[in-house]
Design a protein around this nucleic acid. Structure first.
Lengths: 157, 157
DNA sequence: GGGCAAGTACTCGGATAGGCCCTGTCCGAGTACGGCCGG
DNA sequence: CCGGCCGTACTCGGACAGGGCCTATCCGAGTACTTGCCC
């Protein structure tokens, strides 16, 4: 799985506690990661309409929806792409004992098993929202953790 | 996800209906895939003790256990590796607002959410065995489908 | 003092190279079978 | 006719290149703020 997913999720949680637009360079500085590459991930989130870009001098990125309406699955699909991880190449229709195409109306048993597992995976990710993550962070490190990041964005350095 | 997983699963299902050792070249011919590359996947299954190799002139691969005791998860982990797909790089401990290491005894909320989703995914794959897949194949295409493959292995061509 | 306009500096966005892992391939080590020879 | 031995042919196993996607980077287009000027 792409490592950019972790960066994107952290950025979404941070955006929860910042009402002003947050520039990509500042987010990269906060996480100590490559600014250029993080910009690419944020562009992917922007294309998926999870965040909106504000141009100009005091511009940056802002969440387009309340954090409780953005799921972890949304972020993962925005970065990794909406397609399934397992792709059936229909090898049952190849070779000397190939299954005739007219008998292949339904996906094969292997494809069904893998697809079902991915459904379970997606369901688990869909149950967790960015707001849930932010609440968990407050519970783990205290309410001031996210608030401190919010104020840090207004400082210079 | 590696495409070799699909090949490996199909090979395991085929091995269900073949009691004699099945050579890798014959399995590749049956599925019309690269013999050399399929050999690599079968070696991975052998290292995981899911199949056992029989050397010599009439050698090949045989399942080491009853098909009902081999899960799809076993095959996936043998090919893809047992490690998790999402790897937390602990970026919460980096940057100017880094969380102190003594507060990082438990995984972060993002890591927990992703790990939980993978647990669900693994659980779904663990519920399906190779025997279940073989039964589904018989249900989909008739009982003679797998049996025909079994007899095909004894023919020349 | 207020309004307007130009300049500036900061922002995002897409197009562009490099590295690592998956894909695909090859040849060598090892072993069971088949044939041959000797008893 | 039977047993032992050798040759062969077939098998797996690990080591070796090529391609594609992820990682990382850069520069250009666009916009809001600031500043200076004019009325």
């Amino acid at each position: 799985m792409s490592g950019g997913v972790e960066w994107a999720l952290h950025c979404c949680v941070v955006l929860t506690s910042v009402d002003e637009p947050a520039p990509a360079a500042r987010l990269a500085q906060l996480h100590d990661v490559s600014p250029s590459y993080l910009a690419k991930q944020l562009q992917a989130l922007s294309r998926a309409d999870l965040i909106r870009s504000v141009q100009g001098k005091a511009g940056g990125y802002v969440l387009t929806r309340p954090p409780s309406e953005i799921t972890v699955l949304d972020v993962v699909e925005a970065i990794e792409g909406p397609g399934p991880a397992f792709i059936c190449t229909e090898i049952r229709q190849r070779g000397p004992m190939a299954t005739p195409p007219e008998a292949c109306t339904a996906p094969c048993a292997i494809s069904r098993a893998m697809a079902n597992a991915e459904v379970q995976w997606r369901a688990a990710l869909r149950e967790v929202t960015i707001a849930n993550l932010a609440d968990d962070v407050r519970g783990d490190y205290g309410p001031g953790a996210l608030a401190g990041i919010g104020t840090w964005f207004r400082e210079d350095s």
